[in-house]
């Protein structure tokens, strides 16, 4: 069943034509990785899916519902379905780890504090931070902060999780602990759309890889094919440069 359906998507930043007709279908349980050079439009595409960016033309549907209204209610409705994890974690520094995780379900969904507490503890255990409930974000390493950010996104029980270079700001020795969490999510059947420069990880975990080039999907397919037999010279260059 198709969960996210993007057709003919165009986006401009002023005169800069950033997305030039993108079509992409993501089914439930898919793990889709967007790769491509800097400036090719990966982040922009990802951010249109949860409405952090508007778009000019084309359509996005999520579970059959059309996205595109900039109306506050519609955006909130959309974001209840689509979680996102950012490169810089974006944890709330004035809240403890536990509060970071519980705040949004409490404020937005009005869930009971008692249940939320249990869920937050379970989520922290899942990302390997069971003992950090009362810690403050700035007491954690980057890798731990990013795992909290993942737990925080999961607390909203999204249908899709967007990840934009979530290991790029980490010291190399902290990358794997975060990737391990993502890998586990993928195995559990979470629908993921991610941008990453970790090509080996992308090849192992995703079932669909999308190579973006100058605002278009230049080549896409199963990672086994795409990485070992790139068809276009642009992807050949990219693959030989990064792998």
């Amino acid at each position: 069943m198709s969960l996210v359906n993007i057709t003919g998507l165009h986006k401009h930043y002023g005169p800069n034509h950033v997305l030039k007709g993108v079509d992409l279908t993501v089914r439930q349980g898919d793990v889709v990785t967007l790769i491509g050079r800097s400036g090719s439009g990966k982040s922009t595409l990802l951010r249109t899916i949860n409405g952090l960016e508007s778009f000019d033309q084309g359509s996005i549907t999520l579970a059959g519902q059309t996205i595109g209204s900039r109306d506050a209610k519609a955006l909130q409705q959309l974001r209840l379905q689509v979680g996102m994890v950012f490169q810089q974690f974006n944890l709330f520094p004035h809240l403890t780890v536990g509060e970071n995780i519980m705040m949004s379900p409490r404020v937005v969904k009005g869930e009971s504090p008692h249940i939320l507490r249990e869920e937050a503890h379970a989520l922290l255990a899942k990302v390997g931070l069971a003992d950090k409930f009362d810690a403050w974000p700035d007491q954690l390493s980057g890798g731990q902060q990013q795992r909290v950010a993942i737990a925080r996104a999961l607390a909203m029980k999204p249908q899709v999780l967007l990840c934009d270079e979530i290991t790029s700001a980490l010291d190399p020795e902290l990358v794997n602990e975060v990737l391990a969490v993502v890998r586990q999510l993928a195995q559990e059947g979470m629908t993921l759309i991610m941008v990453t420069h970790e090509m080996r990880f992308a090849r192992d975990v995703s079932n669909h890889v999308v190579f973006m080039h100058q605002g278009k999907i230049h080549e896409a397919g199963h990672p086994a094919d795409l990485f070992s037999r790139p068809q276009t010279p642009e992807l050949q260059n990219f693959v030989s440069a990064v792998m």
Binding site: N50, L52, A72, L75, Q76, R79, L80, V82, G83, M84, F86, Q88, N90, L91, F92, M103, S104, V107, V108, R152, A153, M156
Partner: peptide, 20 residues
Amino acid sequence: TQWEGSAALALNRYQQMRHV
């Protein structure tokens, strides 16, 4: 990034202001 982080968690503008 604090606005974006909280927007991605489905907080509306008032909730972002109030809680973040």
